[in-house]
Design a protein around this nucleic acid. Structure first.
Lengths: 432, 432
DNA sequence: GGGGAATCCCC
DNA sequence: GGGGATTCCCC
């Protein structure tokens, strides 16, 4: 102990109660005080820094490889069989990397890096979910899944702990309160309580349990050295980026799986069906946008649909928004993507084409487009080249082309590749 | 007792053990015999008829109003709050009718009609699910949800029992075995067993538990008269039609909720997206069919899709089957519906229009790249590639008409109201 | 690794 | 009455 317990807001979260080599308590605060204890990981203020050991330079932890931002948390009931474990975020899709944490500036022979699961909140506290791990070479058992530890040293691993085989075990909602309460009691060193204190504790547990986000966690890394059979925390903890539960509707990946039609008249209001991965109908939008050559967004608009158009979380029927310019002369390629307002996340974008609308009052029964690409759609008076059946009330026609429809030089063109779009477009524009 | 127990395959299922006024045992057989007891509702043979009381004309039960064929079974955990109860099947959508059962030809002053839940199997046995009921005027309590009873008489209700407020309580899978075992033991009158018999019973319970269909039940109606404090069954039981659990994927209603396009060229192979109610991708087909003026089916075909085209049970992307006649000269209206092979159930049909194909042999420039060639239906991650305006291999085109495409006089017409269909149709026909 | 069935919760 | 969140199971 380098400081009296509770002597400052900086009192360490873990510095005195752990008996070597492995502590089972969650936060190591061991204050006999009640709920207001600033030493409690749950109830107190998190220390904003960690005391430096007297007469030593403070080492420092740095996360070399962050964990994945998304991972499927598994229930204890799913822990039979193997389901893949928490890896590091990696730029390359197919490259597997492990989570790595390095201890810098350590003066001791070796140190221990501990990894625990904490809440994704401004003041991280131990999470009710548990951290599982099997491949861990240090093979910690009997820790109730509450942490994983690695020994680091200069010679062994250049002070770098590699956490492989980590797993996040999802505590069922029903048990959350109980787990929190048990930990609170532990934190308080199992001090005897009177009825009032007991109630206070229960209330606090309730509050924490009801508040804790079960669908995102962070990893907390701490470094210790062991001396004379006691552990000492040697530097401030580091927190990883948040890890979101892939199975959750609110955190799951947004994805457009299938699209029935990827073009629309620039006047919008055309119905598109898409299949998507699980979405929450109250928290989903479809965003159309266009970027310039510098990737700068130059236009965006939301598609038109209501909750009723979201079919059981997996499909959406929406109407396209009007393009910014109702007078485009050639196809314009834009993008669209799912957007979740609650956390601003988006899906990958899919490309989408806006086609020109029919010109109103255009007076050229023309065919200025090479032979086949055309499109000009639906002039009633347009005389198609093909032979029409005698009573065919129209049906102007053009035929397909292998030529590009919009030309490379930017020459305006009325051509569209999408005849049916043109048709509808015409209809909607003549209504104006 | 009118017959010795087990004396015949017709020994009554419920005739002697029940002590008045309410029996708690499931089948009333109370034989001391072991597993082979023909008297056990679970293990024995079901009686194919019921003994007639000596010297009496046998009365008879008839079900005036059958229960609904579909109902959502509720778990015990859902029994808080009200969720609607089992009603009778009714022709008119909005008309609420109760399940009613009449006892005919009863010579006694009054009788009791009991309703229990049994399996939907050739030899119905008591179901592990329970029958709940609250609105029941006879208000049976303490029957553990195992039956509901009504008293009938000439004056009171014209021998007709009305079962209102029935509910089906879904026994969780985990408890099925235990419930079955308990009942078996009860059936055997809690007779002492040796180890071997115990094992036999467990095995039997296992078998029954694993075999019982938890998603469909029937109601069993029995009639009793009470005399000298004893009950006597007075006629053969009646079984209702099956009631299927609406929440089950296998029994739930098939329904087409939304369709992106209701027309296709008669040559088929056009992609349609539909939103549906929960289906099982391994047990669903889409059937197109046509009926003549007499409602006789004159053509049918299945749409083309694979399991991969079924999106999370709620949406399907399929290709239309070719119509029987590739040379139709005007639109043909057919129907399509979902079809579940396992039980031959179908959804309501939606109407669908086949449009004539473009005439082959007409000479006009065209392309041989099918428009839809990129629609790789079988990839979950369907990437709409048809978006690049500049190199889009273009589409043939026809134009819309405000006139009916098929004319009333039967004059052949190449016109279609569905220009894009024509386009695709054209392409698919040129591929031939 | 992931889909969906089973169970439970709540608008 | 019903949709969907949660938990569990299994291909």
């Amino acid at each position: 102990m380098h400081q009296p317990i509770g002597s400052s807001p900086y009192s360490p979260e873990s510095s005195h109660s752990s008996s070597s080599p492995i502590s089972h308590s969650f936060s190591s605060g061991n204050s006999p005080m009640m709920c207001a204890s600033p030493n409690s990981a749950y109830m107190g203020n998190s220390p904003s820094s960690i005391p430096i050991r007297p007469g030593r330079l403070s080492p420092c932890l740095s996360i070399l490889n962050q964990p994945q931002g998304k991972f499927r948390f598994r229930y204890a009931s799913e822990m039979t069989g193997t389901h893949g474990c928490l890896m590091a975020e990696s730029k390359e899709r197919n490259k597997k990397e492990y989570i790595r944490v390095q201890l810098e500036g350590c003066q001791d022979r070796e140190a221990i890096i501990r990894c625990t699961l904490v809440t994704n909140s401004s003041k991280p506290v131990p999470h009710v979910h548990r951290l599982g791990g099997e491949g861990n070479s240090n093979g910690n058992n009997g820790n109730e899944g509450e942490y994983q530890e690695m020994i680091v040293s200069a010679g062994k691993n250049e002070w770098t702990a590699t956490f492989s085989g980590l797993t996040i075990i999802h505590t069922a909602k029903k048990q959350v309160r109980e787990v929190v309460e048990r930990r609170l009691i532990n934190e308080l060193g199992n001090a005897p309580m009177n009825r009032n204190q007991g109630q206070q504790l229960k209330d606090e547990a309730d509050k924490i349990a009801n508040t804790m986000d079960l669908h995102s966690v962070k990893l907390k890394f701490e470094a210790f050295v062991e001396q004379n059979g006691f552990r000492e925390q040697i530097c401030p903890p580091q927190y990883s980026q948040a890890i979101h539960n892939l199975k959750s509707t609110h955190a799951g990946d947004l994805r457009i799986v299938r699209i029935d039609k990827v073009y629309s008249c620039c006047t919008g209001q055309e119905e598109i069906f898409i299949f998507v991965e699980k979405v929450n109908k109250k928290d989903i939008k479809i965003r159309f946008f266009e970027t310039d050559e510098n990737e700068q967004e130059i236009w965006s608009a939301f598609a038109d649909f209501s909750e009723l158009d979201v079919h059981h979380q997996y499909a959406i029927a929406f109407k396209t928004p009007a393009y910014q310019d109702p007078n485009i002369q050639s196809d314009v390629t834009v993008q669209f993507q799912l957007y979740r307002p609650s956390n601003q996340s988006t899906s990958e974008a899919k490309s989408f084409t806006y086609t020109p609308r029919e010109r109103v009052g255009m007076k050229r029964p023309r065919r200025d487009v090479p032979l086949n690409s055309d499109s000009n759609t639906n002039k009633r008076d347009y005389n198609a080249t093909r032979t029409l059946p005698n009573n065919d009330p129209v049906a102007p026609n053009t035929f397909p082309s292998n030529c590009p429809s919009g030309d490379e030089n930017g020459t305006p063109s009325f051509t569209s590749n999408f005849a049916d779009q043109q048709r509808k477009c015409y209809e909607s524009s003549v209504k104006h």
